[in-house]
Design a binder for these strands. Structure first.
Lengths: 236, 236
DNA sequence: TCGAGTCCTTGATGCCGCTCAAGTTTCGAT
DNA sequence: ATCGAAACTTGAGCGGCATCAAGGACTCGA
């Protein structure tokens, strides 16, 4: 394979130790065989961002699909009044930029690097080609979208109908499930958690303090929480 | 084509006058040629519901994809406390049931007929087959999902960050755009509009009354509103 | 290791919007 | 056309939560 260096120049995200391409960790691609993966990798570009830098902003033209290789980023929206709402945090293997891929070609949210970040970028046209050539990719992407849609609608419903207390409790329950452990580490600061749950950092602090006073949780570090009584929490 | 009666028995939604199948009005299918359409129609089943009847409920197994042929239905979720939030209203040509198609096989919301309703149903397996056979369908569906996702995230952000007044104003602005006219007809009752915007019917009434008092709108009928000063409305 | 900046906590205050209630209008079925 | 039920409006009261403010804790880079 003389293309080794070529791959590197296009997308240097080949993990030499694990012999895997950046895209191979992505669920929507991981059913492809090595040759197909390489075809995709060849069209991918690699980009790095320092902590805090914006990857894109609302109104900017879309380049294509962004796949996180290392680090993490947050997607957020901004209201007329300047408040922001965190939509989602992306870790390795997750992707973004899709809204601009299929409909309008401009982004509708902000994407900001939370840590030193490495992305793989697949151009709009390449992506369309792959989707037609390998319909399985489209199917996986449909599944992913469908899942995101369900999450987003559930989120909207929660913010619309539940009290802040319930939302915080439900979030903690979700984290316990995600970590498969009653000791959880919040993946973001209060400010982002607040904007995600549609409240303020102050209220988050207060509610967590209330839960602790009730003996349902224990706050060990700023972002470390041990859930003691999950059932009580969900009865709020 | 001896299949005429067969089509009818499977899906009686052939509009004799317009020579179009129920599925041909659906954006995700309307690029197919007649033969392909017929192939899909053949696998579709037709179902009717009287006003007020539930098409599905959360937890029920998914049958497949529901396509609205005549009438309309509303999708809504229910909170622990029994409050409901309207997610979306579907009219002819729109579809639902997708969340159950790709991920879990159970529904996560309610679907209820708002008027006498006729649906086309395409089974889960058939749908998967079509998606692989005609990747263009998958691409259109991805575009539709992506658009719904953007809408849903925007909705969540609005409920989380904007005041009720702003949300009502933005909703009216959206309707003006949808109707391409400053005289609009609300597509739902106060109760549903309220649950859609994350508020109560009383508050909707009050805000509309405020807007009218300010001279920005005129309420001509219960659901008929004339927007007089759109700019002022958006400055709220 | 240290210091500055950021993040978090806790308190006091005020208001937006929900709730409950009662009266009025509209809708839809017979 | 008429009646009953459902939907809408308006009012009064209150509570949850945002806001503003100040002090304390943590983090990260030098």
């Amino acid at each position: 394979m003389k293309t080794m260096s070529e791959e590197i120049s296009n997308c240097n995200h080949k993990d030499h130790d694990k012999n895997s391409y950046c895209v191979s960790i992505v669920p929507i691609f991981n059913h492809l065989d090595a040759a197909e993966l390489k075809e995709i990798v060849r069209t991918a570009r690699s980009v790095s961002y320092p902590r805090g830098q914006m990857i894109y902003r609302p109104g900017e033209l879309s380049d294509g699909l962004y796949i996180v290789h290392k680090g993490s980023l947050r997607i957020f929206r901004e209201s007329s009044g300047g408040k922001e709402q965190l939509v989602r945090i992306l870790g390795p293997g997750e992707f973004s930029g899709e809204s601009a891929l299929f409909n309008e070609s401009v982004h509708d949210a902000y994407a900001e690097a939370l840590e030193p970040l490495e992305l793989c970028m697949i151009g709009r046209e390449s992506m369309q080609t792959f989707l037609l050539k390998y319909p399985q990719i489209a199917l996986k992407m449909l599944a992913e979208f469908s899942s995101r849609l369900a999450t987003s609608e559930e989120q909207a419903a929660r913010i619309a109908m539940e009290t802040v207390e319930t939302r915080v409790a439900l979030y903690l329950a979700g984290q316990v499930e995600a970590w498969k452990n009653t000791c959880i580490k919040l993946p973001m600061r209060r400010k982002d958690l607040a904007s995600h749950l549609g409240t303020t950092p102050e209220t988050i602090s207060r509610k967590l303090a209330d839960f602790e006073a009730a003996g349902w949780i224990r706050q060990t570090g700023q972002r470390d929480i041990e859930v003691i009584d999950l059932d009580a929490l969900l009865l709020v």
